[in-house]
Amino acid sequence: MSRARALAASLPEELHLLPYVAAYEWRKATAFRAGFVLNALLRGVPRPVVMTLVYLAMFRSTGAAEIRGYTFVDLVHFLVWTAAIQKCIPDWRSLDLAEQIFDGYVTKYLVMPVSYFTLLWGRFLQFTAVQLLAAAAFWCAGALVLHSWWPQPVSAVALAQAATLLALGTGCYLLTYFILNCLAFWLDVVWSLLNMFMFVAAFMSGMLVPVALMPRAVRGVLEVTFPYWTVNAPVELLLGRLGPADFRFGLAVLATSFVALHGLAFVTWRRGLRRYAGVGT
């Protein structure tokens, strides 16, 4: 109880620090301009470009007008939205905590009068703010160049619903990466676990291929997981293929996942610190 009270008391201070942490992270992220431009702006674009050509080849091959209710244009729109959304999702390189644990650098955070979670959410804030801008720039550039081909949100409500799901979903991604990074307290290596999650999540989220094209049983499973509601579902909301009832269900799935992951992250961090030796290479 007293710990909860202490946490509540320090909250204003932590919130005050948040923008400073975000500014610090921005400086780090933009230290190498070419890398920033390539990774922030162009990241996630090559795959949709290539997949567009793959879908084109598929439609040419079958001669059909649509595949499981998707026309070629629908699939291209799906890819465009996926590319924009993917920019906002943290990847395993967004967090270098595991390396800091291995190298003993976490010590510096432990002696700071600020919770590590403030630093974590500061980084998230910076990442999301920049990536949202990058996603918006990507969408605007496409809309200017390919006006009639470029997808528009079906409605402002759908856009708001998609943004809500995306915000919660990206938080879930970050927490999952955080938990996996924390396993460095126990394991000698975690990068393979992070990659493993990335591969599996990419498939589950519909980033690689729309979930609607997958077999019905697979779809049923994916619809109760947060990757699906972070990418595929917001895209389908923007395309007008999902409605308010789906949004409410997705919101529940994501909120539950977020709370559960946050709790798990907190426990993993606390337990891990007990094992932390503070030394490394």
Partner: peptide
């Protein structure tokens, strides 16, 4: 802040 943004555009 301005210095950071300026530095990004013109090193």
């Amino acid at each position: 802040t301005l210095g950071i943004l300026r530095g990004f555009v013109r090193r």
